[in-house]
Design a binder for these strands. Structure first.
Lengths: 221, 221
DNA sequence: CTGGAGTGGTGAGTGGCACTATCCATCGTA
DNA sequence: TACGATGGATAGTGCCACTCACCACTCCAG
C-alpha cells in the first residue's frame, strides 16, 4: 500500500506520517521507484502503536523512538527487552521534563541531596528486589521522597513498603500476561503496552478506590 | 516579606512568581502601598507546593490552579475536597493533553466507542465501589480498554479486577495517612501531595518490581 | 500520449505553553 | 534626594509536536 492508504488505515494524517518517517519512528517503506514506496501491515500496526504511546499516553517523540528501537532490537530476550524498555521510558514523571533544579533545596534546607538514594536502597533490599545498578525508576522514588520531605511531610522508605508490596504483585500480574503472545515482535510490543498503557489505568483505579473509601470514611451524605 | 525574599526562600525566580500571581496560582500579597505588598509564610509554602505540582509532577498551570482552588475552598470537608481534587486533576494520562481523536477507531473498526464504559461500570460494581456519576478516572480506564482492543490485545474488565484489588488497598493506605495532619489547610495539602506526588513513585516501584521478576523469569545470566 | 492527481522528500511555519526579559512609574530607605 | 527594589504590564523566548508548501517525479484514466 502507499502512503494515503496507510494514512486511512491508521487514522494518522499524511504529514504526520512523513514526520514520523523523518524522525525515525516509522521505518521507511520498501522503495519501488525514485519517489514511490510500498508499506505493509507492519507499518499500520507500528503507527497505531506510535499513536498509543505519543497520543494516548503522552510520551515524547524521542522517548518513543528509543522504546521502539528497544522493541526491534531485543525481540528474542524478554528480560533484556524489558530492561531496555524500562530504561528508555521516561519513568512517568509525566512526559514534560521538569526543569531540573526543582526538588532541590532552594536555600540550604539541610539534608544531603543523595541520602534519599540510600532510603531507596534500603527499600529494595527489604523487598528482596534485585535490579540493575542505577535504574531510573529508583531515581524517581528517591526524588519523590526528597520532595515530600522538602514540603514538610515526614516520609521515609518504611512508609513505602506497603506500596512496594502492592507494586510487587502488580508486576507479577503484568508478567503473567506475557505468556500467550505470539511471535517475538508482538510479544515485545505487548510488553510495552502492558507496562506503559496500563499506567494511567492503574492510577485511575486508585483514584476510583480513593473516592469510594473517602466517601466511607469522611462522607456525610 | 517582599518579593525578593519570597523568591530566595522558595527558590522560584521573581519573574516566575509574578507570572504565578498574574495567573492566579498564588494569591496576591497584602498591599501596603501602590506598588508594595507584603507576603508571608503561607506564600512560601504555597509556592513550594506549586513547584512540586508543576515542576516535579508536571501538572499544567491551569490544572494546578484548579487543584489549589479546590484545596482552598474545601478545607473542612475532606471527602468533598478529595472529590474536587480528583475532579480537577488531569487523571494522569501524562500532562500534555493527547490531541483528542486518538484511540477512536480510524476506519470503522467496529465495536461502539461507548461500550468500554459499560465494562468499567461492571468493574466498579464487581469491586463494590461507589463513586460520583461520571468520574474522569473511569473515563481513563475505559479509554485504556479501548486502546488495548484497538491494538489487538484481547482485554476486558475482568483482566483488571486483580489490579483493582491492588488499587483498593493502595487507596486505603493513602487515606490512613491523612489522620495526623494538623490544621485543615495542611491536611488538604497533604491529601493532594499523597494523591498526586505519590503517583510517579508508585509506577516507579512497579517498574523496579517488574525488573526483578523479569530477571527471575526470563533471566539467563 | 498526455494531463492531472498522487507520492516522496525537505525546509519552513504554526500553535500552545511555561516561562523570561524589558519597561516604567512609584516606593522607601540611606 | 538619589538609587536600588517593587508591582504591574506587554512582549518575547524556547521547546515541541505537528502542519504547510513546494518540488520533481510517477502513475494511470482517457
Amino acid at each position: 500500500m502507499r502512503i494515503s492508504e496507510l494514512s486511512r488505515r491508521s487514522g494518522v494524517s499524511i504529514p504526520t506520517i512523513k514526520y514520523y518517517l523523518r524522525d525515525g519512528l516509522l521505518p521507511a517503506g520498501r522503495p519501488t521507484a525514485a519517489n514511490q514506496a510500498e508499506y505493509d501491515e507492519d507499518h499500520v500496526r507500528r503507527l497505531r502503536l506510535i499513536r498509543s504511546l505519543i497520543g494516548v499516553r503522552g510520551l515524547s517523540v524521542s522517548a518513543t523512538r528509543d522504546v521502539l528501537a528497544a522493541v526491534d532490537e531485543q525481540q528474542g530476550d524478554m528480560h533484556l527487552l524489558l530492561g531496555l524498555v524500562l530504561g528508555a521510558l521516561p519513568v512517568e514523571r509525566s512526559g514534560r521534563p521538569p526543569r531540573r533544579d526543582d526538588a532541590a533545596e532552594p536555600a540550604g534546607a539541610g539534608a544531603a541531596a543523595g541520602d534519599a538514594a540510600q532510603d531507596v536502597a534500603a527499600l529494595t533490599a527489604e523487598m528482596g528486589w534485585k535490579t540493575s545498578p542505577h535504574p531510573p525508576a529508583a531515581q524517581v522514588v528517591a526524588e519523590t521522597l526528597e520532595t515530600m520531605r522538602a514540603l514538610g511531610v515526614d516520609y521515609d522508605w518504611r512508609s513505602l513498603v506497603p506500596y512496594a508490596e502492592l507494586a510487587d504483585r502488580a508486576a507479577r500480574l503484568d508478567l503473567d500476561q506475557l505468556r500467550d503472545a505470539g511471535d517475538p515482535l508482538q510479544q515485545a510490543e505487548r510488553a510495552v503496552l502492558l507496562t506503559v498503557l496500563l499506567e494511567p489505568a492503574l492510577l485511575a483505579l486508585r483514584r476510583l478506590a480513593q473516592e469510594h473509601h473517602s466517601a466511607l470514611r469522611f462522607g456525610n451524605g
